[in-house]
Amino acid sequence: THVPPAVPGSGKERLQAPHQLCALRAGDYVVSNRLAVERTLRSELLGSADRRELAQRIQRLRGVFERVCVIVEQDRSKPGELSRPVQRPQHYDGTLSALVQAGVRLLFSSCQEETAALLRDLALVEQRKSAAIRVPTEPQGHRRDLLNFYLSIPRLSYPAALNMCHHFDSLRNMANSSPQAIAAAAQVSPQKAEEIHRYLHHGFDAQLLPKSLCATGTGPAGARS
């Protein structure tokens, strides 16, 4: 089955695009196995509180995805507001410079429609580079149950979890795979595959488990926190 380049959204915006939407834990959009896109308003690059929040979002994405792109969208001007030339804040250039230096890709958009077009373009480029998501974004049956298991692996992207769902017949099969096999199945970098492999083999030490997590007593089996 071939799925068109999937652009799942967080649900907070629904852009006019022939793409699938599903809930993401991080990032506004995922356009391929390796690229996540964060949409931000220009005004959010100006204040230091907004900038801090954006930095946290980007940092989280960088841990999960190979590539991160930020689309800077022009704020909508209020009706009747005259577009008068304003001094470009130095803070804005500082943020742009830091993003460039950190290797984050930047795209600029003047409105929501342009943002949607840019997302489509990004998805097409990724497809051309054979990085498009090629597995069903809604796994069925047993595979669906396994998705949550894979998603609970730290810093694993949603597409990587989908790929693992699709390529491994069982958890046992996955747990016994080499890092190379994990990289091929999940479509992740060798480094990320090593990280997953290490996680699966991590020797659990109950002493190190934060007390707040294991305080159960009579908690019903199957309860999830």
């Binding site: 960088r62 230096q101 996680y199 030490d205 190190l208 488990l209 934060p210 999830r224 926190s225």
Partner: peptide, 22 residues
């Protein structure tokens, strides 16, 4: 640089514990 990824600080124990509860 605030946009560079920081090394993961969370202990694997907590995550492994969550994973098994899936």
């Amino acid at each position: 640089n605030p946009f560079l990824p920081k090394p993961c600080s969370q202990l694997a124990e907590a995550s492994v514990f969550q994973t098994v509860q899936q």
